[in-house]
Design a protein around this nucleic acid. Sequence first.
DNA 1: TTGTAAGCGTTATCAA
DNA 2: TTGATAACGCTTACAA
Lengths: 336, 336
Amino acid sequence: MAATLKDVAKLVDMHPATVSRALNPRTSHLVSPETVARVRKAAESLDYVPNPMASGLRTSRSHTIGVVIPDLTNPLFAGMVRGMQDTLARAGYTPLVVNTDNDVETERKVVSSLKARRTDGLILATARREHPLLEEISSTLPIVLVNRVTESVALPSVTTDEQHGVRLAVDHLVGLGHSQIVHLAGPSWSSTGHDRAQAFQRAMKSHGLTATRRSITVPAWSVDSAREVAQKVLASNAATAIVAANDQLALGAFAAVRQLNKRCPRDVSIVGYNDIPLMALVDPPLTTVRVPVVDIGSEAARLLLSLLREETPTATKHVKLTPELVIRGSTAPLRA
Amino acid sequence: MAATLKDVAKLVDMHPATVSRALNPRTSHLVSPETVARVRKAAESLDYVPNPMASGLRTSRSHTIGVVIPDLTNPLFAGMVRGMQDTLARAGYTPLVVNTDNDVETERKVVSSLKARRTDGLILATARREHPLLEEISSTLPIVLVNRVTESVALPSVTTDEQHGVRLAVDHLVGLGHSQIVHLAGPSWSSTGHDRAQAFQRAMKSHGLTATRRSITVPAWSVDSAREVAQKVLASNAATAIVAANDQLALGAFAAVRQLNKRCPRDVSIVGYNDIPLMALVDPPLTTVRVPVVDIGSEAARLLLSLLREETPTATKHVKLTPELVIRGSTAPLRA
DNA sequence: TTGTAAGCGTTATCAA
DNA sequence: TTGATAACGCTTACAA
């Protein structure tokens, strides 16, 4: 059906090898300019497009990148994937996206299915902190980590400055007069949950706010469990402000506030994290730390592509992007 | 690096062809049960996984499906893609997802890049109504359309019953006593925009509500342009209820209501469409027509897979899923 | 039931 | 600068 190299060769009365050289940008300089032109025209006229399976078989490069995320349905990861898709496509690579649903067993399965597909590299944006099979994969395949780093193996990564982001939130609240600030922390198996909780402690300490029970962990990244936890906190606690570990948890806090017949931001100020879509449209509009999700994706792709290009493995690169605070209606000065 | 068929063959002292037959479920019956067992064990011990490029080259099937959507960042499409991924993966297929941003030129480009990748089929969830290259592709490749049908070519499709969904919304409002109902219609180049507007007219007519200017078109699927349009409508018009063509437009209507110092649902009831995530958490919680996005995705995948299996093209199948109304806080009885 | 051999469409090496 | 040839790893007639 589709035209092959041989068809083009026949048309210009040349050997397939010559046609291949002429069409391949990396080898076309080995061929006289006029034949290149002739071949190009012929290829065009036949709509010739190289068969990636054939060239992949020969070169053992699939021009394919495995992308492992918890869940595409989460706007955070959808944004990242979008960034990856765009920059990978420009370089002639295709991402193969798989979801783990934060399950270690599925994670093992999808990674091995990606290896079976002979992906040229891997971008791991999974959330778990510990990760058994990282080492063994990394020896066989270029890997870029997203939103987390590893202690054990030195792997290139793209992260955001959680420390900075959380501090922005805390500084903002302190600036508004709050001192009774509580952190709604993400699950402890999650690397961002862990990191943000730690960053929160540090930011509080830097303001001389060191009382205990400042941080309470939500068992899942869901609105509902955040609501339950926040309700307990707000009922028993004199907290006037909450820093939530992500926007969903912040929305859970909203719900808790409403259930207790309190009001946000009048009675309690709430800051989210990530700035997923529509957060400007909830009520009240959510003050939150904006994470450049699409940029994270493109940076991760860019980093992986550079890894694929260089054969001599240089020093492990870490890209760290900076989040910013978006102040909206869910935070207000402490009432005297 | 990775083990090949030859390696396994050497280990069991057999010919690669036999090993191939033993390992392939479709041909393993041609081989004695004990050799199958022996080969399986050997393959396992070497972590043999077939090289898809090699087998693909031989069989000219990539086990890959092109998925064309407007934008992964839109939760509607993220959900559909999730459904496709899951059911395609189970069948050994990998989706290649590309975004068009609703641009015809990019659409042309991404489709040809998918053809270059030799995908075995295509799922098109793009929004445009007219679509020049549909016919020529469909002759070369199995295609399933999502969320739209074509007049010109008969192509299998997965849709939801827009007629029914819109009627649910209108019936609900009429049941609450509303008669001054306006439709915030999506862009007319968009198939769902078009379909829902038509369905709205019909539903209104069935209630004997036939005044003109009942429908007003928003030029883009965005919160902001919906806000602008809704503001004009609500300022000049005695509308007591709005049926928005999707949830984002409904949120725009929320904003317009607030800007005019009116209140929803007290002064105007608003119904959305799709039920994207978090719509229960906006204020007021949005009454909306829930579309089973993930199911749409899996149905589309299933349909395409069945197309790939059957060589004799049977009648063009159309799967139509039924949406349901989710009543929340943005609709209320008409005030007397 | 198993082995043989050819070929899918490329590209890399070697020779001309 | 171009041509010939082999090989990448697999499947599939066909032969044994």
